[in-house]
Design a protein around this nucleic acid. Sequence first.
DNA 1: GCCGAATGCTTGAAGCCTAAAACATTATCT
DNA 2: AGATAATGTTTTAGGCTTCAAGCATTCGGC
Lengths: 162, 162
Amino acid sequence: MSDAETLLADAPAGHKDELRLWLRLLTCTTMIESEIRRRLRAAFDTTLPRFDLLAQLDRHPDGLTLGELSRRMMVSNGNLTGLSARLEAEGLVERNPSPTDRRATTLRLTSVGRTVFAEQSAAHEGWIADLLGGLSPGERSALFRLLARTKTSARNATETAA
Amino acid sequence: MSDAETLLADAPAGHKDELRLWLRLLTCTTMIESEIRRRLRAAFDTTLPRFDLLAQLDRHPDGLTLGELSRRMMVSNGNLTGLSARLEAEGLVERNPSPTDRRATTLRLTSVGRTVFAEQSAAHEGWIADLLGGLSPGERSALFRLLARTKTSARNATETAA
DNA sequence: GCCGAATGCTTGAAGCCTAAAACATTATCT
DNA sequence: AGATAATGTTTTAGGCTTCAAGCATTCGGC
């Protein structure tokens, strides 16, 4: 029996379950994420990637290099070139050559950037509380634990495959 | 007390919890989604939006209009113009004027599209089973239920706000 | 000290995505 | 029937995203 035949024979039985779970997970995240994007645009005329970058820098007052940001934000390197250029043009972020490595550029919040982010961050936290407010504390902690398990499962699967 | 002051006074206490939950949800979904995108590219040289559009059409053999697709896929209308044009150029999809509404265009799979999607779909199902395979059946069904609750919570929050 | 490998970043091409404006057609209300 | 509103699609401008190619610098081994 060929590999393709094996796949087709085995698949219908056990895998629909996981697929439904994945689709639901994706729908949930997409719904919340779209709403957050919409509110960020409406309230602050900004975007989620901009907000995420500011959030990282806010947590690291000494600055981060583009490479460090790229890894933390799980986006490609080239992506950050444009994103940081836009934020610099808006005056929220400043770019300086790394003192220890002449290849690297460090990014940090300007004082304007810090102020702007503080407002956005407070609103964001409220929005999330609003969107997830329909869950009881017990449900939230159960979900939190199950997602930790999910993360582990996914990480193991991607690593053994690679 | 002003609204802003109320927000700031209440926020630090109760909302960190929901924020951590949201970040974990987002991380999980992003990890799995990136891996699926990577595998779709490696195995079939295609993308997730293309795959999603084919999946919708596969479920509706009589075809769907761009507007229906837009709603089901939760993406903007204008987005589908380009996406469907690319899939048509690749010969996977055919566009026909709606017989009942001269404004509308219906999309359906070509026979090539149906064959291509069947392969991709089988592989996709296996990948998801792989990525979520670390969860027990009990964990999966508990997660499934909690995500339903999450979806309801988010939907209520977006509707009452709008 | 020198050379090749690894690392940090930028650029370019292509695709995905949105919001808003424009256009065509259909539905509704008198 | 005629005006108005609603719906279906496309276009436009701008931003986000990736991959791959290229350049600059640093690191490791010799």
